[in-house]
Amino acid sequence: MNVTNAPLVVDGKEYHSRLLVGTGKYINLDQTRDAIEASGAEIVTVAIRRTNIGQNPDEPNLLDVIKPSEYTILPNTAGCYSADDAVRTLRLARELLDGHSLVKLEVLGDPNTLYPNVTETIKAAETLVDEGFSVMAYTSDDPIVAKELEQIGCVAVMPLASLIGSGMGIINPWNLKIIIDNANVPIIIDAGVGTASDASMAMELGCSGVLTNTAIAKANDPVLMALAMKEAVRAGYMAYLAGRMEKKEYQASASSPSAGNIASHSN
């Protein structure tokens, strides 16, 4: 096997794409489907919400275009501010998806910043792991919390690059590096990716994958950005495997040989 095609392994299952995508903020379901197809992602997040009572029964459902038979659906707990609400949401999601147990846990702490509440996240993770869920946990870039989530039994830890939907990119690469270097489960960047280079940078740091939604959905051309993200994650992963050159801050090093340079004989 070519090393650059090494699969991402989450909860014992192999995925050939290291890009995970969300399904929010698209203008319609056609655009959702087209962008997600273009991204090549195999793991796709969805939110769990009350059914609109009285809706047109023929109105297409998200799961009609993103079929559970074709994608690994990752239900999230977006909008939950307590461990209890998150656990309740994911129990419903498991019933909706016929016993599917891979879930994205996210417990928020503040409605303006959508910053994660890590104490409630840890509480919810403990309950969910006990109940047999395979938990991918969204968290801050705190290395101690990340390790704790791993020790609880989360199958992946997903620190933010920056605030959800901000597109601010990776604010604290050093913290992410500490998390990555100490991890025994996949570390997947979640939230804050703004464009392709952010995804590449995450992979170059050694992340196992990148989860993004807004950067694709809110691009002027979401399908083209989905393609860009796919390439960026792959390029970043290959660069990580290749190992970058050492940075030399004050010492230039010419790429061309100095021997035989006519300029040196012209004085």
Binding site: G24, K25, A47, I48, R50, A78, R91, A93, E95, L96
Partner: peptide, 30 residues
């Protein structure tokens, strides 16, 4: 009433007065 009703029990569970029913589905999200 905050208890999940498995699909296999949809024929069995009968509504009672003041039951609080929540029906959810998947929507776009990240």
């Amino acid at each position: 009433n905050k208890m999940i009703i498995p699909r296999s029990e949809y024929d069995i569970y009968c509504m009672k007065d003041n039951d609080k029913v929540e029906i959810i589905n998947a929507v776009g999200g990240g």
